[in-house]
Every structure is written in C-alpha cells, then in structure tokens.
Amino acid sequence: MTSEDKHEKVLFIVQVGDSTDHEIESIWTKPTERGYLIDNIPFYATGVAYGDTVSIIENDGQKYANEIIEVSGHSTLRIWFNDETYVSVTRNELQQLGCSSEISDQPKLVAVDVPPDVDYQKVQAYLDIGFKSGRWDYEEACLGF
C-alpha cells in the first residue's frame, strides 16, 4: 500500500439540532502534504464535502477536523426518504445526473455528492419534485459553489 492509498479516519464534531449537544462522525480521508483530503461523502457534518482538505488536531490519539484548508467545489446533500422503496431508483437517477451517493446505516438516509462540473440546478429541480410529491426531504449540507 502506497501513501497515496492510505486512508485514515478523521473525526468531525457535529452539533445536534439547536442544542449544545454534539455527536461525532468519522470520515475517511487521505493524508496529503497540505492536510487530510475527505474521501467519502459526509452524512452528518455540515460545511464540508468530498474532496475538501481539512487540517486536524490530535487529542488522545484521535484525529479531529480543525478547519477547512481547501474547498473542492463539490456539494453535499442529504436525502431522508419517507419510504425506503425509493432509495435505489433515486440513487440511480442521481447517478445519471452525475452524482454519486452513499447509504447510511439508517437505510432511509442517503448522502449525495454533487461534483463541481454537474449542473446543480438540474439536481435541485429533481430533488424538489421528490420533495413536493412527499417521497423525501432533503438538506443542502454544503454548497461548493
């Protein structure tokens, strides 16, 4: 395994709603000379996206995200499905629009990566149709444009 193939988990502190409570999301990264390149789609952390580079702070042997060093231009969306039966077809349709996605450990939650070269307005229009029809709710967790 070369250093380019090495992946490390970086912990992101995620605020729970409007409360002072927080949870931790671990996100796969690739160490680089500049920092840690996010290498999967965040499910809960906001303000970060696939391909962003973050600095870290180490505490008790754990790596915690500190700040964003470089943005990738990618956007992160989260979809919460009202019915699990729409997940597969929706992921396929988003893939046809140029977006990748990942299913959470909660089968109704899907994180979506919108690369910078994808027409965001087309993706948003598609998601708005599903929202208005009651199939899902969605959140723009990080807009890279």
Rank of each mutant, 00 (worst) to 15 (best):
M1V: 11
S3F: 13
E4Y: 12
D5T: 14
K6I: 14
K9N: 13
L11T: 10
I13H: 10
V14D: 06
V14S: 02
V14C: 11
Q15C: 05
V16W: 09
G17Y: 07
D18S: 14
T20R: 10
T20H: 10
D21I: 06
I24V: 15
W28K: 15
K30M: 14
K30A: 14
K30L: 12
K30S: 14
E33S: 12
Y36R: 03
D39Y: 13
I41A: 03
F43D: 07
F43R: 09
Y44T: 06
V48D: 01
G51C: 04
D52Y: 11
D52L: 12
T53P: 09
I56P: 02
I57N: 08
E58A: 09
D60C: 15
Q62E: 13
A65C: 08
N66R: 14
E67C: 13
E67F: 15
I69S: 11
I69Q: 10
E70Q: 06
V71F: 09
S72M: 07
S72K: 03
H74C: 09
H74Q: 05
S75K: 01
T76W: 03
R78Q: 13
I79T: 05
N82D: 14
N82S: 10
N82C: 07
E84A: 15
E84C: 12
S88M: 08
T90N: 00
L94M: 04
C99H: 03
S101F: 02
S104D: 15
L109E: 13
V110C: 05
A111F: 00
D113H: 05
D113C: 07
D117S: 10
V118E: 02
V118H: 03
Y120W: 11
Q121E: 12
K122R: 08
Q124W: 11
Q124P: 00
I129S: 04
G130P: 03
F131A: 09
G134Q: 04
R135T: 02
D137V: 07
Y138M: 10
E139P: 04
E139V: 05
